[in-house]
Write a protein that binds this DNA or RNA. Structure first.
Lengths: 207, 207
DNA sequence: CTTTTTACTAGAATCGAATTCTAGATTACG
DNA sequence: CGTAATCTAGAATTCGATTCTAGTAAAAAG
């Protein structure tokens, strides 16, 4: 492995750019195939053809079909989380923050419907390595969210509860609603019931 | 197809008993393999060996590996739902009913931990046929639950809300908590946070 | 009680898709 | 330049799901 100076690697040597683009195109192709043909129905060839690259190239970058699926999942979660944290930081108080969580969930799922669907389709059942990476992502997220909300709890704007219960209380209902919507169980989009869930979320945790 | 008298088929002709037993043993073996080796990591041979039967037998009963997975899923959901409805019918009023939903979720997931884990690991992404069967199971459940709760809404004990929001509001948080617990994200079992979620559920829908 | 049909079991043979392997091209870097 | 590392290709292999053929035992028909 080459340990180049940290600053140089991130930017744009001709190859690293090409590599990033190729990986991205494979992931995009994979998502599209998974959506159209189902995760199991998709073959490496389907992805490879759609991404315009060779089998060798795919295996070089992802190691296995499962590797593609994991990357897509972890990458998607990470992006979702990042956006969430960004939204939170725009908020002024506890209530606005809690409502922002629900709102962001609705917006993001509507905007990235296919990816959202994919993220919902897998949740447990990963390789040891992917599990570790997921746990890491998850912990970073929890830490960021915790940092944001802790002062509100301190100040009494939000109730004091077991630490692991906040996320389920706030986002559980909207998440479950979105899951059902994405599986085609109901037709009313999340944006139209957003208020109901935002109210419930705030109610569940307000001081 | 033989159309025997309806009453006779359900009970216990020597063959139908043996068949039921074999199917059950395959499903049990499958669940165990899925738990130990992961859904993808499990081969038909693994299941076949553990269930002590031949490949032909498995394919005769389930048609495909996916068929086993679907049967396990649908059967599990159906049993969960049935138990839930039974619990509900023991309740006297709205609040007790709502709390019972959360309680049942905790108990069942703890008692049938492996099956619960499996049910959480798949949620979308089924064959057309399985989707139809799932929808049917789902509708029956919703109908039963709706029948139970409707009078309470009428009587003003529970709030009037968009029909599809009740289930996510009541069971979303505990479900999300259990999912995280089953994936190993936190160590405190659902029974220890049951009250928090029961309170929140009742709060979200009380009149 | 035979015959015939149907449900079920068995396991070898097939087929297809994931993965591995070898070779060659391109880029970084001293 | 030249040497190593990264990356791309696609043919060859491997492994597992599925199919097929044959046979057994229970049920239904007569």
């Amino acid at each position: 492995m080459t340990v180049s100076s940290p600053s140089a690697s991130s930017a744009g040597s001709p190859r690293s750019v090409a590599t990033k683009a190729r990986k991205a195109s494979v992931l995009a192709a994979a998502l599209d195939c998974f959506t159209r043909l189902g995760t199991d129905g998709t073959t490496i060839q389907d992805i490879q053809r759609q991404a315009n690259c060779s089998i060798g190239s795919i295996y070089h970058h992802f190691g296995s079909k499962e590797g593609i699926a994991e990357e897509l999942f972890l990458d998607g979660i990470a992006r979702f989380n990042k956006g969430m944290v960004r939204q939170l930081k725009k908020c002024q108080d506890a209530e606005e923050s809690v409502r922002a969580v629900v709102g962001y969930y609705c917006d993001w799922s509507t905007r990235h419907r296919e990816l959202a669907r994919y993220l919902h389709s897998r949740d447990i059942d990963f390789s040891t390595d992917a599990k570790a990476r997921l746990k890491r992502i998850h912990q970073d997220y929890i830490a960021a969210v915790f940092l944001w909300f802790a002062p509100f709890v301190e100040a009494g704007q939000m109730r004091q509860l077991p630490i692991d219960t906040y996320v389920p209380l706030i986002s559980g209902p909207i998440q479950e609603y979105v899951r059902r919507w994405l599986s085609g169980h109901h037709n009313i989009g999340p944006k139209q019931v957003r208020e109901v869930f935002a109210d419930a979320a705030w109610n569940a945790v307000k001081g």
